Simulated assay, not measured.
Amino acid sequence: MQASQARVHIMHADAVMTAGLRTILAEAAEFQISTGAGQHGAQVIVADYEAGIAAARQGPQDRFGPAPRVLIVTQLDKEWEVRMAMDSGVHGYLLQNCQPEELVKAVRSLMQGMRYLSESVTRCVADSLSRETLTGRETDVLQLLAKGCCNKSIARELGIGVGTVKTHVKGLMSKLDATARTHAVVVATQRGLIGPGQRISGALHNRPAFHSNALQ
């Protein structure tokens, strides 16, 4: 092993993706690649969405050393999915259809202490920062609207008054620039703000500072 090689650990749930990631990164002689359960000593972890978030939240395994930097490679591209990962402490986010050169570039960026987002993900986050974010309660109401609940049902479910529900509906419709309740659900679905069984009220409150592909 060359002294300058960076230690990269791949922990992707998809075996085919793992093989592809390993092959691409191995061709760049600057990386020492490992896979499997053990990640001790890794400087960068390349992972799927769930494993990446878990690794970012876990922190350093060695209390005397820094935590590995985490790069997620996934097909998940919804606004709330990206923001959830960023809020969890992930350092980089790539989509699975990225070019091999971009994967290598992303790992290098993380090794240099920078963060990295693919171009399409950067646009997604930048667009979300230009919009008013929904409050936690507005998100709860929106989720119930998507399930077809009426104002009385929403009020009963959330333990609030019907008038308060109407206020939240009016607020979320304004923020989503929607003309009707069903339109609000359509817009939110297109933006990835709601999904089956998802509660995302905490995913959009904090705004991570990602404004370009590679950032200090």
Rank of each mutant, 00 (worst) to 15 (best):
G52V: 09
Q99L: 04
E157Y: 00
K175S: 07
G171E: 01
L129A: 13
Q39W: 12
R57N: 14
G202P: 06
M17L: 05
V186D: 10
Q143L: 01
R199S: 13
I53M: 14
L103Q: 04
H205K: 07
T133C: 06
H12V: 08
C124Q: 05
S153C: 00
L172E: 05
T189R: 15
Q112H: 07
E132P: 06
T139V: 12
S118L: 04
A54W: 02
W80H: 13
C150D: 15
R137N: 08
L117V: 14
V90E: 12
V16G: 05
R199L: 10
A106G: 04
H183G: 03
Q75H: 13
H9G: 11
D87E: 09
R137M: 15
G38W: 00
G89I: 07
P196G: 01
V162K: 14
H183Q: 08
G136Y: 03
Q190D: 15
A146V: 09
G36F: 04
S109I: 06
K147M: 11
E27S: 11
A42S: 12
S130G: 02
G202T: 11
A42G: 13
A184G: 06
L94T: 09
R191Y: 08
T74C: 12
G65S: 12
S34W: 00
L145I: 08
Y93S: 04
E102D: 02
T122V: 15
L142I: 02
A203H: 13
G148W: 03
Q32F: 09
H40E: 14
E119C: 04
L117R: 06
I194V: 14
M86P: 04
E79K: 05
T122D: 02
Q39M: 12
Y49W: 10
V141S: 11
I33M: 13
R131F: 01
T164N: 10
L215H: 02
L71M: 07
M111S: 02
